[in-house]
Amino acid sequence: MHLLPSGKTRDNLWTLITPPTVWAWHFLLSYITAAYACAPNDAIFEAIPGPRLLVAVLTVVALAIIAWCGVRAWREWQSEYVAPPFNEASPAHRERFLEFSTLLLAGLSFVGVVFVAMPALFVVDCR
């Protein structure tokens, strides 16, 4: 990550897509965890607490990273506050636009991770 002298992040397209990328990894790893635990699908009534716990851990980690991205974006946006729609031709507006959009994507990704974690909360076996 590229830091500015002020200690703030120089936002770019990679920082913008970090929260949804975390969502994607959480999704993929949760899916692999369940698929691996339940394949070959022989003992379908056997509880799988281990894999469920692993999904829970993945969820906490994913939510923490996404929240950190969101909080960082929020702080940096607020500290040099510009109101949307960020439509001026200046580095400041570009930066605020990327921060605000990152914040929105962090929100969506956070909700997305919570959604995806739910099945591991309620489903106990491989049926």
Partner: peptide, 12 residues
Amino acid sequence: LPAMSLGFFSAA
């Protein structure tokens, strides 16, 4: 597919 896998996709 196991219900948990279905759940992930349903949630997304």
